[in-house]
């Protein structure tokens, strides 16, 4: 054996590992820094922020930004609406997805292939924005909460993910055994399939819930009544349309008001992302699992 070759390789490998650590660390810091900065900025004083003294840690620690956000009624209305849209919407989504995916996963479901093809086709071709909009309008759903629930009642991608999970995880023998005992399909789904499918239900629930919480475009398209706006719409108004001036009207000093307007945007970003940030560490593994199940099917 050529020992010098092995030696040379191991020094080469060492260099590789060091470079790799440096690369991963840079990627890590590049992703982390903006997040840390926003958190720090949100806890700084408006003046420190505007003077550019905040780099990494909060400067002149304070919660003025959060105070302004908390006093802003629209944000809470949006929060409430978003929770409502998310909870009801996700329940509809999950029920629909399982109702579609379970039959499609069964080998003895005649016509399943055609239905799957019809479903999958909608992933690569669709009517587009205007026909969608006109349909919702013609159904009388414009400016109604239903417009955020019904047109998005189900995502075909998630149906495919759930179908491949059922196929892989519910053995045929189980169905046969249940059949022999005179078990109906409904009963089998309720008593056998669902209890075995906790993982996939968690995955699709989270997929849908995040989608609901983060979406703004359907609200922009279909809702005109501010009372029904989800949080993301108010965020859009404040962060991007600069409509936050009425939040800080009671601040007398002109420049101070300007500063506070900027600060509260950072606080608002944190407040809006808080629910996901809190649950993220606990549910992260389900998202990873979801991607894996989805990738089996491709």
């Amino acid at each position: 054996m050529n020992w010098s070759g092995v030696m040379k390789n191991s020094t080469g490998d060492k260099a590789f590992f060091i470079c790799n650590y440096i690369f991963a660390s840079i990627a890590f810091l590049l992703v982390l820094y903006p997040i840390v900065y926003v958190i720090s900025a949100s806890f700084s004083s408006p003046i420190a922020l505007m003077e550019g003294r905040v780099w990494l840690f909060p400067v002149d620690l304070g919660v003025q930004g959060y105070k302004a956000v908390i006093e802003y009624h629209d944000v809470w209305m949006g929060y409430g609406n978003s929770i409502l849209y998310m909870v009801v919407g996700t329940i509809i989504n999950v029920v629909m997805t399982i109702a579609a995916a379970y039959p499609l996963s069964r080998k003895d479901f005649v016509g399943g292939k055609i239905i799957m093809l019809l479903f999958a086709f909608t992933m690569i071709f669709s009517g587009g924005m205007i026909p969608d909009y006109l349909l919702v309008k013609n159904l009388g759903l414009l400016n109604s909460r239903l417009a955020l629930w019904i047109p998005n009642a189900m995502t075909v991608f998630n149906v495919i993910v759930a179908t491949s999970f059922f196929r892989a995880n519910i053995p045929d023998e189980l169905l046969e055994a249940a059949r022999v005992d005179g078990c109906s399909n409904f009963r089998f789904l309720r008593s056998i399939v669902l209890p075995l499918s906790g993982a996939i239900i968690a995955v699709i629930t989270l997929f849908y819930a995040v989608e609901h919480w983060n979406s703004y475009f359907n609200a922009l398209l279909y809702l005109s009544d501010k009372q029904m706006y989800p949080l993301q719409m108010f965020l859009r108004d404040i962060l991007l349309m600069n409509s936050s001036s009425d939040l800080t009207m009671n601040v007398a000093d002109e420049s101070m008001r300007l500063y506070l307007n900027e600060l509260l945007k950072y606080s608002l970003i944190i407040v809006a992302s808080l629910p996901l940030m809190i649950i993220y560490p606990f549910v992260q593994k389900y998202f990873v699992k979801g991607v894996m199940i989805g990738s089996i099917k491709g």
Partner: peptide, 13 residues
Amino acid sequence: FISVVVIAGLLVQ
């Protein structure tokens, strides 16, 4: 998991 609105707002800020 950050919403597109927050990303856009963040970039602008």
